[in-house]
Every structure is written in structure tokens, then in C-alpha cells.
Design a protein around this nucleic acid. Structure first.
Lengths: 206, 206
DNA sequence: AGGATAGGCTAACGACCGTTCGTTAGGCAA
DNA sequence: TTGCCTAACGAACGGTCGTTAGCCTATCCT
């Protein structure tokens, strides 16, 4: 155990110090924005000095990259977890549920992902673009399948996909995990909204 | 004319230097974010030095405030221009059209409004909150009217309003004034999408 | 012509930034 | 006890930031 890497050091709560830094960074990045959050402020929140953070991380950008990566991976995994042998309506429903679950389960991470990812540069940025595109492609496939099966009635699959993503993506701005609506209920509202928009009417096959 | 205030000085294109500063600031704030845009960079884009900007403006925050205010005012004016004696469907359609027109007509201003307004502080910030709330209230009134008239079929007017706003608000992320779809066509797609979501079906009264 | 004004510049201020470096203290194993 | 490692600190590096003050020039007005 003497060779344990430094990032497994234990913070009081049982999580690693590095995880704690990431968590607080996520909160601050979300609240103030990446560039308006200083390392000194982040350290202060952790009862440390700015310089001390570098015992655990390489750079500020690494924090952003890791937070954004986590969200991107979560969204993509969620989309990829949608059973592709289900009906388009059921798939759409699963997609929506997965989307909201990711946001609700890690609101800070998701919010930073949506709002701050463009501050990444180089390969990290490109990697995010790829995953966003892949995510959109998953949704597009569902919409297209719905159109092909007759469950959805849209004139332009690309636009319908964009509009659906728009509906889902803005939710980080107002979705409150402790809000008045339980997630299941919000998911039901969302699903009905989107299905209606896609022309799936209430009698659509599930 | 010797008493002309300083902000009416003429830039090459015929607009005032101050307007030019605002325009370029809007572009840079949108592309890089407010905090990641420096006054030196803004000045450089205008072939000036950073310090020279203060002959025309009081502060960096004033730029942000003015850009955000313009967008907020435009959105609210647009919503208030919706004829309240029309059918709910027609009102909704006008709302959507107005929303997209504001964005399309000043994409930088709108994008900065959606993405950077939280960097404002004090009364300016509060003023934005008020206008955002007023804008949402206008939409809510339309949705509620549609429910009352039987044109819309939603279970929760507040949630339906939020979801509709979500659908509209994310468009600044992808709406390209020079994109493949003319605005009228995009508006038609958008209207159909939202009306469908609100349970207004294609036979709904217009 | 002379004075006023506007707009631009340079230099500088005071504050802040992300990060590195040298050092210290505490913990652990041999 | 000694030696090593980790985590944290203070000091500092090498900048950057928004902004102010003083100066200069061009233009306009009387």
C-alpha cells in the first residue's frame, strides 16, 4: 500500500481530496463561470491555499476538462443505454428520462458541461464535439425510426432532432433536483411534450 | 455642433464609435465569454489601445449591461407586440416568430444575453431578472388562454410554459442567420413543433 | 489666430491570475 | 531512529487585468 498514488489520499468525508476539489470546482464553475473562478477562491472553499491544489491536479483546465468529460460521458452512456429493439416511442421516452437523470443526478457537472465546455481547447475540445455529435446522432436515429414506423410525423428529421435537443438541453437552467416536481413526474411531462411535438399523439405505441 | 457629446463621433462606417465598440464587444463576448474577453483584445479588434475605450465608455460592465439590456428589451417588446385579441394559436405563433426574429436579427446580442447575463451585478442584474420573468409571464398567458379556449391540452400550464421557453431559448446555440433554412421556414417548423407539444394538433384554430 | 474639445496614446496603478519552487510537518515503514 | 513520501504552506514568478492620469494632435468654433 506504500505505493498508493497521491490522488487516493483521504479527505474527511471519505472521498479523495481530488474528488472534493472537482466537486467544489464544479459548483464554483457553475455559479460564477470558469474564467471568473480563481484557484485561490477554489482553494479557499476547501480551506487550502491556491498553491496546494497543485499537489492534486495539474492545472485549472484539467478540472474543467474532467468535469466536462464526466458529463459528456454520462450523457452518451445514457443515450447508448436506450434499448434499440424497443418501439420508437419507448426509445424516445428512455432517451428523455436518461437525459433528465444525468442532469438531475449531477446538476453542477451538467451545467458546467452545457455552459463552459467552449473554454476547453485542443484535443479536449474536439473530444467534446465528437461526443455531442454522437449524442445527437443517437436521438436522430430514434426520431428517424419513429418516422419510419409511422409513430412520429415530422417533415424534417434533422430539425425535429435539433428542436428536441433544444427542449432537453435548456433544462439545466431551471431544473432543480429539490424542486416542486419529482423527477418521474417531470419526466412524464417532458415525454408527453416531446412526443406531442413529434406528432406521436396520445395513442402512439409504447 | 461643437457641443455634440462624445459618443456621436463618427466611425468609418457611419455608425458611432460607441456603437462599434458595442458591436465588437458583443461578438467577442459571444465567442469567448465576457470574462475571457479583455479590453485590450476588444481594443485591438478596433485598432485601438485598451485605454482608449474609456473615452467612449465607463466600464467593461457597462458594455455587458447594454448588450444584455438591448436583448432583454427586444424580447420583451416582441412578446408585448403579440396581439392579445388573436386566437391562442395565432398568439403562440406570433410569440415564436418574434422570439426567433430577435435572435436572428441580433445573434450576438441574443447569445450574450442568454449566456452571460449572470455576470451582471446589482440593479442591472435585477432588472434583467424582471424582464425575463415578464417575458415568461407573457408566454404563460398565451398557454393559459389556449387551455381555457380548448386549443391547447396541457396538464400543467407552468411546466408547459417552461418547456416551451426551453425549446425556444436554446436556439441561440445553433441558429445561424445564414443557415440552410430561411427564417420563415424555421419559424414554421418551430411553430408546428410547439403547437404539437401543446396538444394543438394540426386542426387547431388559427 | 486662439481656445476648447474629442479622441487617441503611453505609462502606470493596484489588483489579480495560474503556476512553480523551496520548505516544513506529519505519517509510515524498515 | 532514519528515511521517504505526501500534503500543505509561503514566497515568488511571469504574467494579465480593468482602469486612470497626463500628454498630444486634429478638428471645430468663435
Amino acid at each position: 500500500m506504500g505505493t498508493t498514488p497521491s490522488n487516493t489520499s483521504t479527505a474527511p468525508s471519505g472521498t479523495s481530496r481530488r474528488d472534493e476539489i472537482l466537486r467544489v470546482a464544479g459548483e464554483l464553475f457553475r455559479r460564477h463561470g470558469y474564467h471568473a473562478t480563481s484557484m485561490r477562491e477554489l482553494a479557499k472553499r476547501l480551506n487550502l491555499r491556491g498553491a496546494s491544489l497543485y499537489a492534486h491536479i495539474d492545472s485549472k483546465e484539467e478540472l474543467l476538462r474532467e468535469i466536462v468529460d464526466r458529463a459528456a460521458d454520462a450523457f452518451l452512456a445514457s443515450a447508448r443505454g436506450v434499448p434499440c429493439d424497443a418501439s420508437p416511442v419507448a426509445r424516445l421516452e428512455a432517451f428523455v428520462r436518461g437525459h433528465l437523470r444525468v442532469i438531475e443526478g449531477q446538476i453542477e457537472t451538467a451545467a458546467v458541461f452545457f455552459h463552459e465546455w467552449t473554454h476547453l481547447s485542443g484535443p479536449a475540445r474536439q473530444h467534446v464535439v465528437e461526443r455531442r455529435d454522437a449524442y445527437q446522432a443517437e436521438l436522430r436515429a430514434i426520431v428517424a425510426a419513429g418516422v419510419a414506423s409511422g409513430d412520429f410525423d415530422v417533415e424534417d428529421v434533422d430539425v425535429a432532432t435539433l428542436l428536441t435537443l433544444s427542449t432537453l438541453n435548456w433544462s439545466y437552467q431551471w431544473l432543480d433536483p429539490r424542486g416542486r416536481l419529482p423527477l418521474e413526474e417531470l419526466t412524464a411531462f417532458y415525454t408527453e411534450y416531446v412526443l406531442g411535438a413529434l406528432g406521436a399523439g396520445k395513442g402512439a405505441q409504447r
